[in-house]
């Protein structure tokens, strides 16, 4: 697969939220406001980027040579948790405004399937280093775009009447379903 097709697939047709269901929690939780959505998207992209590259080197240069691939789950979880913790501290100290918007969701990235899921996916797809970088950036971009579009829809939706039992998450999931239909058509 060429780099361009990896990139386009990871942004649109194989968007991690809509086809792999990774990162649903922040998707449904933070995306009430456009600004928060953008910040969330960018910080997930950043964590995925740093975490993914470290995971790539650890997997191919430590786990595979020593024949301990089965340790990948434990190792990746620990790495990602520590990266998130450091980013959390940096944002709180340097960018208090962003921290206010999404403070409670930052620790959740540690337990966010998007970050760990992307690390597993790039290994399952057997990408080389450059392909991995393209894939990670594409996925992050896809995540950010989607969470942003979705937040704008939610903002408009807040002013419309919604059936009582559909309020909140059910309608959010149905919107996501409709978006998944639209995004899957990009492949044709």
């Amino acid at each position: 697969m060429s780099l361009v097709s990896i990139f386009i697939a990871s942004v649109l047709t194989e968007n991690i939220i809509l086809t792999k269901f990774l990162g649903i929690c922040p998707f449904i939780g933070t995306s009430h406001r456009e600004k928060g959505a953008l910040g969330m998207g960018l910080s997930v992209t950043f964590v995925v980027f740093v975490g993914g590259i470290i995971a790539y080197f650890l997997y191919h240069y430590v786990l595979v040579p020593t024949g301990t691939e089965y340790l990948r789950t434990i190792l990746f979880v620990l790495i990602i948790a520590s990266i998130v913790q450091s980013i959390n501290i940096i944002i709180r100290k340097k960018f208090p405004k962003i921290y206010e918007l999404m403070g409670i969701f930052l620790p959740l990235i540690a337990a966010n399937c998007a970050v760990l899921g992307i690390a597993f996916l790039m290994i399952d797809y057997q990408y080389n280093f450059i392909e991995t970088v393209v894939f990670i950036l594409g996925s992050g971009l896809g995540f950010t775009i989607l969470i942003y579009i979705y937040a704008t829809i939610r903002e408009k939706l807040a002013q419309r009447p919604v059936l009582a039992s559909f309020q909140g998450v059910p309608i959010a999931l149905i919107i996501a379903g409709i978006m998944a239909m639209i995004f899957s058509r990009f492949g044709l």
């Binding site: 086809t19 059936l163 039992s165 559909f166 059910p170 999931l173 149905i174 239909m181």
Partner: peptide, 22 residues
């Protein structure tokens, strides 16, 4: 066939959640 695709997953969970809420 839509229910076999990811879009169907979102729709089914959304509707079931609404029914459960009800």
């Amino acid at each position: 066939n839509i229910f076999a695709t990811p879009a169907g997953a979102f729709l089914s969970l959304g509707f079931l959640l609404a029914i459960f809420n009800k």
